[in-house]
Nucleic acid binder design. Structure first.
Length: 116
RNA sequence: CGGGCUGGCCGGGUGGCCGCCGCGGUCCGCCUCUGGCGGAUCGGGGAGGAAAGUCCGGGCUCCACCGGACAGGGUGCUGGGUAACGCCCAGGCGUCGGCUCGUCUUUGGCGGGUCGGUGACGGAAAGUGGCACAGAAACAUACCGCCGCAGUUUGUUCAGACGGAGUUCGUUCAAACGGAUUCGCUUCGGCGGACGGCGGCAAGGGUGAAAUCGGGCGGUAAGAGCGUCCGGCCGAGUGCGGCGACGCACCGGCGGCCAAACCCCACCUGGAGCAAGGCCAAAUAGAGGGACUAUGGGUGUCCGGCCCGUCCCCGGGUUGGCCGCUUGACCCCAUCGGCAACGCUGGGGCUAGAUAGAUGGUCACCGUCCGGCCUCCGUCUCACGGCGGAGAACGGAUACAGAACCCGGCUUACAGGCCGCCCGGCUU
RNA sequence: CGGGGUGUGGCCUAGCGGCAAGGCGCCUGCUUUGGGAGCAGGAGAUCGGCAGUUCGAAUCUGCCCACCCCGA
C-alpha cells in the first residue's frame, strides 16, 4: 500500500473516532469519515486481544491485501479495527468480512449509485 | 531395532501471477539546480534460533569533567578466556547415579578406583541474633538415671566379736566360775530398701529437623576420646607436591545448625538511556512565579579542585523531515599456538534497515510426520488369527514465534528431523 | 521500544520465617406481623505459578505469568 493511502496521525484518527460513522460485523469494525481529497486513506488497528505480534501483523497484512483488491471509492478516511476472532480467521473469511462492510457503507466503486 | 540426553546443527523446498520496503543503474518531470523531491523501468537484496523475557555485561550518546572518603548496589572454590560479565573452558572439593575391586556382622554396610551428571561453592575460631511445638536440656545446662561418701530409718542374713537371756553339763550346799548348746533380744559388722544432703558422671531414657564423633576392646566406684584399633571431622601446626583451590604424611584436637538473618573479608561499581543526543522547517505567549552574584546550580552524601552565568516551577506551541542507522569485539575458510574456552597470522565476503512499522495473498508440484479401507512379503499357528516390514487411494498435522541503536551471554517457548554419545536387545 | 510497580477468601486491606487476621459481602438461627437494623453461630484461601535455601516459606532468593503506571 502506497504512502498516499496511509492514514496516520493521532489528531485525525481521534477526530474520526469522535465524528465518523461506525459499522461492524463479527470480525471487524469500520469507522469512516469524508476527507475532501481525491484519494482514500486507511488505518489498520489490531489490539492485544487479537493475538501476539505475529498474529497482529498477519491480520493487518491480510486486511491491506483485501482493501487493495476491493476497488474502493476515493474521498474517504477509514479506520479498520480487528476484533477478537480475527486472528483465527483465514484470508477468505477476512475478505468476505471486508467486502460485506464495504458494500454496507457504499465504499465500493463498483456500485454506481452512491450516497451524497 | 527400541529407549534416553549430558552435546552440536537444521528448522520447509521449487515455480507462476498480483502486491510492499531499502540499494544500484537508466530515463522522465518539477524545484530554491556540484544538489534535492516525485514517478517509470531494469538488476539485486529483504526477520530469528530464540528476533521473545528484559535477567546480567559492554560499545555508543548526553549529563562540562576529575580525584578522595562514606553510603548504597552487586559478585563470591581456584586458574585461565574475554571489551566485559552473574557468561564460557579446565581443574579442586562436596553430592548423586552406574560399573568395578577390596573388606565385613553379606536382600546390606564401609572404603578405594573409574565414568557421567550436578552444586548461588568465601567466613559460624570477630561480634549480634534466631532455632516455634515437643523435650530434662536447643547452647551451656542436668529431669529421670548411674556411682561414691557420711547420716537417719528399715528389712534380711550370718552366728564372727562384745553384751544379754534360756536349757544343760562339770565343780559346788548354793552362788560364782567354766564348757556345750539354743534364742536372734541389743549393738557392731555383711548384704540390701527408703529418705533427704554433699560430691562425681554424661553411658542409658524419650522428644525433636537437629542431642555434644560412630563401632570394637580396655579402663573405672560409676563413667567419659580417658587410652587404644578401624573410620569420620576440625586445625589461622610442621614437612613435601601443586601457580593455586587443594592433596598426602606426621603432629595436636573432637559442643550443633542458619550468613538466599544482620554482618565480616576480598573484588567490582557515577547516573540515565537512540523516545539517548544533534540539525532543519513550522507554530506559539511569556518583560508569569521563585532562587540567586563571596552565593546559586552542576553527583546519592560530604570534601577538594573545576565549570557556568544562570537554575527550578508554571503556562503556551509542534506531533513534520533529516542525521544517529548499520562495516561490526562482523561472517566464512586455512595455517599455527593451546587439554579447552579462545587467540595470532593470511585470504575471501558485505549479509534487513521499517517508522503504526516492509516477507503477504493465491495456485501448482514436492518434502517431513501421524492415522489409514486395501494389497504384497516374512514369521508363529492345524486353523481362526497374531506380530513385524513395504507400498498406497484418502484424511490430518507442518511448531514457537516478527528486527526497531548494535553486540556478548543467560533464561524461557518450540511440530519435526540429522549427526554425536549413553543404555538394553538381536544378528554378523 | 525503553523504564518502573503490584499480585493474600467474592471485594478492600493487614501480616513479612513457625497461628493466615480484620471489615464489607454470603449462609443459618434468634428478634419483628414482615423487611431493615441488631445479636449469635458458620462456611469460604493452591497467599499469581514453578523451582531453590531452611527442620520449617505468604514472608528469603531465582525464573516465569498476569495486570497497572510513566517516558520524544
Amino acid at each position: 500500500m502506497q504512502k498516499q493511502h496511509r492514514l496516520t496521525g493521532d489528531a485525525r484518527i481521534s477526530e474520526i473516532h469522535r465524528e465518523g460513522r461506525s459499522i461492524a460485523n463479527s470480525l471487524l469494525v469500520f469507522r469512516l469519515s469524508p476527507n475532501g481529497l481525491d484519494h482514500s486513506r486507511f488505518c489498520f488497528i489490531a489490539g492485544k486481544r487479537v493475538g501476539n505480534a505475529v498474529v497482529r501483523n498477519r491480520v493487518k497484512r491480510r486486511l491491506r491485501e483485501t482493501v487493495r483488491d476491493s476497488g474502493f471509492r476515493p474521498g474517504w478516511d477509514t479506520i479498520i479495527m480487528a476484533r477478537r476472532g480475527a486472528g483465527e480467521a483465514n484470508y477468505d473469511e477476512l475478505r468476505r468480512a471486508v467486502s460485506n462492510l464495504m458494500r454496507r457503507t457504499k465504499l465500493t466503486a463498483s456500485e454506481p449509485e452512491s450516497t451524497q
